[in-house]
Amino acid sequence: QIFVKTLMGKTITLEVELSDTIDNVKAKIQDKEGIPPDQQRLIFAGKQLEDGRTLSDYNIQKESTLHLVL
């Protein structure tokens, strides 16, 4: 699992595989929060994550926290 922190300070827990693409992750956030993926920007280690890449491409591990910017 990974964590996604919103600017409102809310933390969302997502069940993911490290082979999941950023697209997949955004879809899971949409399922939980109702935010359309095209409005989501995910940040990790100061970098904006690109849709076609996977979590492992960015060296994101289990229990990592991503930041969601709208």
Rank of each mutant, 00 (worst) to 15 (best):
Q39E: 12
D23K: 10
T54D: 08
K62W: 06
V69Y: 09
Q48N: 08
R41A: 12
L49C: 11
Q39S: 04
K32D: 14
T6W: 02
L7R: 15
Q48T: 14
Y58W: 09
Q39Y: 04
I60P: 13
S64R: 06
T13W: 03
L66M: 12
E63A: 10
F3N: 09
V4G: 00
Q48P: 13
H67D: 15
Q30M: 05
Y58Q: 15
I35L: 08
T11F: 06
G34A: 09
K10A: 07
D51W: 02
D31R: 05
V4P: 01
L49A: 09
L7E: 15
L14N: 00
I35K: 06
L42N: 00
I43A: 14
D38C: 05
D31L: 07
T21H: 08
K10D: 09
H67P: 15
D20G: 08
L42F: 11
D23F: 09
T11V: 13
P36G: 02
T13Q: 07
I12S: 03
R41T: 14
Q40P: 01
D31C: 04
K47S: 14
Q48R: 04
Q30T: 04
V16P: 07
I2Y: 01
K28N: 09
E15N: 08
V4N: 00
L70T: 10
T54H: 08
E17R: 09
T6E: 09
T11L: 14
P36K: 09
A45E: 15
Q1Y: 14
L14M: 12
Q1E: 15
K62A: 09
V25W: 01
R53K: 05
E17H: 09
Q40E: 01
K28W: 10
V16S: 10
E33Y: 01
N24D: 10
E50C: 12
T13G: 09
G46T: 08
K26C: 09
T11I: 12
L42Q: 00
K26A: 07
G46E: 11
T21C: 03
T21G: 06
Q40C: 04
T13C: 10
K28E: 10
A45L: 14
S19R: 05
G46I: 04
E15S: 08
G9V: 01
I12W: 07
D51V: 06
L7D: 15
E50K: 15
G34M: 06
V4W: 01
L70G: 15
D51H: 04
I12N: 04
L70C: 14
G52D: 04
A45C: 11
A45D: 15
K28R: 10
D57H: 13
E17P: 09
A45G: 08
T6P: 06
P36C: 04
I2F: 02
T11W: 06
T65V: 14
N59P: 13
L7Q: 15
I12G: 01
E15V: 09
Q30C: 05
G52L: 07
P37T: 13
V16G: 09
L14R: 00
V69H: 08
L55Y: 01
F44S: 12
I35F: 13
L42I: 07
P36A: 04
P37S: 10
I43V: 10
D20P: 00
P36W: 06
Q61V: 12
G52A: 09
R53I: 13
I29P: 00
